[in-house]
């Protein structure tokens, strides 16, 4: 029974961790789905959003604002920062590169990454800043069935809840709104979308803003988990296997990919790690991703790539 209890605990913990990876992966998916750009800067955007939020929050609390008001104003301030960032990226990076090939656009986002990382730390500081927006203690379930129960972290549950809302909201946005459909048209072909009157600058601003807001949401959860600090940018690396598995164009795929990566790496680390020296979870996620790539290159939920020869 203890072994089963441990397995369930690791499995559930892994699934919930995977959802937190999905929060970051969703930003990648959004931009790729809507503009065909693989946004390497998503991790840096999480850092920027997190720093803007936590530093403004600290300042507002120090000025005597009640916590609830400081949180609302802090989130508002961070959202404005992300809007300004989206505008700057569209105006000075992506906009001038319209109709360039995907590799050029990808390279430009690498540049954006370093600029955002440097600027965010220069403006808001480079320390580790505590953020406590969600509870971080745990529930212990089924204590009557398993000694010690099965641990379920409240922060993970909050993360899952938020990811669910995000996915539902984004799905509605893409499927049911005019702007959402325009985003998909732009992703298919920039030039064709422009020729039918879709304002590509506006569309790209919207999509980078949406990705920025998703980054802000991810920062609230990951900032609570780790504190807001530079290392938060490494979450981008955790999101990559999620994207490969789920597919770069699928919002539900980001969630399912997160489940697979989270559960897979945790089970591998806990039950296989000790036999091969431990510390395997980081690369094990990429083993899973490679396995999916070999079988289904577009990912489990990605759009099938059909090109006319």
């Amino acid at each position: 029974m203890i072994a089963l209890g441990q397995f369930l605990e690791v499995l559930i913990g892994g699934l919930m961790s995977g959802v937190l990876y999905s929060l970051v992966a969703l930003g990648f998916v959004l931009i790729f789905k809507a503009s065909g750009v693989f946004n390497f800067a998503q991790g840096a955007m999480v850092l920027l959003a997190g720093l803007a939020l936590v530093r403004s929050l600290d300042l507002l609390v120090a000025w005597g604002f009640p916590l609830w008001a400081a949180i609302i104003l802090g989130i508002g301030f961070a959202a404005v920062i992300m809007a300004i960032t989206a505008w700057l990226i569209e105006r000075f990076v992506i906009g001038p590169l319209v109709n360039q090939d995907a590799l050029t656009l990808f390279m430009s986002t690498i540049g954006v990454t370093f600029i955002l990382e440097g600027a965010a730390q220069m403006i808001f500081g480079s320390d580790a800043y505590p953020l406590r927006l969600f509870p971080t203690d745990a529930w212990f379930l089924f204590e009557n069935l398993f000694p010690g129960g099965i641990l379920l972290n409240k922060l993970d549950v909050w993360g899952g809840f938020i990811a669910g809302i995000l996915v539902a909201g984004l799905a509605i946005f893409f499927e049911r709104t005019k702007t959402g459909r325009a985003l998909r048209a732009v992703a298919d072909d920039h030039l064709a979308a422009q020729s039918v009157g879709i304002p590509i600058s506006w569309i790209w601003f919207v999509v980078w803003l949406a990705a920025g807001l998703v980054a802000l949401v991810a920062a609230t959860v990951w900032g609570t988990k780790l504190g807001v600090q530079f290392s938060i940018t490494f979450l981008a690396l955790k999101a990559l296997p999620v994207l490969i598995i789920g597919g770069l164009t699928s919002i539900p795929g980001a969630i399912v990919g997160g489940f697979i990566v989270g559960a897979g790496e945790k089970i591998a680390e806990v039950f296989l790690g000790s036999y091969i020296g431990g510390g395997i979870e980081y690369w094990f996620a990429y083993v899973l991703a490679l396995a999916v790539l070999l079988v289904r290159p577009q990912g489990l939920f990605g759009e099938r790539i059909i090109e006319r020869i």
Binding site: G13, K238, E265
Partner: peptide, 11 residues
């Protein structure tokens, strides 16, 4: 860098 330690702490 050590941002994810759930496996270790569950163990």
């Amino acid at each position: 860098p050590g941002v994810e330690q759930k496996s270790q702490w569950l163990a």
